[in-house]
Amino acid sequence: MGQKTHPLGFRIGITEDWRSRWYASKKEFGDLLVEDQKIRLFINTEYKSAAIDKIEIERTRDQVVVFLHSARPGIIIGRKGQEIDRLKARLEDQFGRRMEVKIIEINNPFRRAQLVAEDISQQLSKRGSFRRAIKRTLDQVMEAGVNGVKVQLSGRLGGAEMSRCEKASRGSIPLSTLQRRVDYGFAIAKTAQGVIGVKVWVDLGDYADEENSDGAYAETGQASKRPKRSHKR
């Protein structure tokens, strides 16, 4: 159970909230689901350097609200909010809907598994040593105050002729309970010898701990408290 199941997909609807929160009829559901994926792909492609951890989407009858969890919100907001207005206009032109973009700032990127995985993939793409990248990442993540971290690399590591798998971990990664907040991230490093897959697991403790919420809510650069939502999808 702990080895073959996606940690986030396993917890969604139980202890994790849905990434897309809306209701639709059977006729519209498929089209809206594909549109959500296109929105995520468009934003991730255009803002690769913004360190986006995840994208949440909420829909009403006439509006789409996109929440961007980013460690570098200044890149998305731009000077005087010009860039976020440009992003909003491009989304409205491409998808033909009224859009609203909200930024959720991530204070500590080393507590987010997806950002850690992307950081390792960037080091490998720049021909860095995979052993040095793993050791450095494990130290940085543990210093961020997490309970445990595990990193797995798969591919032609170090330019070897045959691909192999390298694992390293610190602390505890309990994958057989749903009451632990285990964050999971996956990234791909494109090297001259081939593609290397990077998987990262980060144990952030129990869901009951209030310390787990390490993101400050901000809209167009102004921080405020994120509202609670009772309806889940």
Rank of each mutant, 00 (worst) to 15 (best):
D17K: 15
F42K: 07
A223H: 14
S129N: 13
V64Y: 04
R40V: 06
L41S: 13
C165M: 15
A113P: 06
N107G: 12
G155F: 07
S25F: 03
W18Y: 02
G96M: 08
P73Q: 00
L157D: 04
L124P: 01
L115T: 00
R90I: 04
S230C: 11
I14H: 13
I12Q: 09
M1L: 13
R72M: 11
V198Q: 00
T137S: 03
R226I: 06
Y184Q: 09
Q140E: 06
V195N: 07
G74C: 01
E100G: 11
I103L: 11
D62C: 01
W201M: 09
G197C: 03
T220V: 15
I55F: 04
A24G: 03
V195H: 03
N107T: 15
G215I: 03
R229Q: 08
Q63V: 11
R79M: 09
Q123G: 01
L8Y: 05
M99F: 05
R98Y: 09
G171P: 07
H69F: 15
R132W: 09
N147S: 12
E166M: 15
L138K: 04
A71K: 03
K150F: 00
K126V: 06
D206E: 15
V198C: 05
S70E: 03
T177H: 10
N107P: 04
D214S: 12
K4S: 13
V182H: 06
E16M: 05
S224V: 08
A89Y: 12
C165P: 05
S121V: 03
F130T: 06
G128L: 01
A216Y: 07
N107H: 13
Q193S: 15
K228Q: 10
N147R: 11
L41I: 00
E143Y: 09
Q222W: 12
L178E: 08
L115Q: 07
A192C: 13
D36K: 02
S163T: 14
R90G: 00
R40D: 02
R229N: 04
E161D: 15
R19A: 11
Q82V: 15
G128N: 02
L204G: 01
F67G: 05
Q37H: 14
R40N: 01
Q152C: 10
L124E: 01
I57W: 00
G74Q: 02
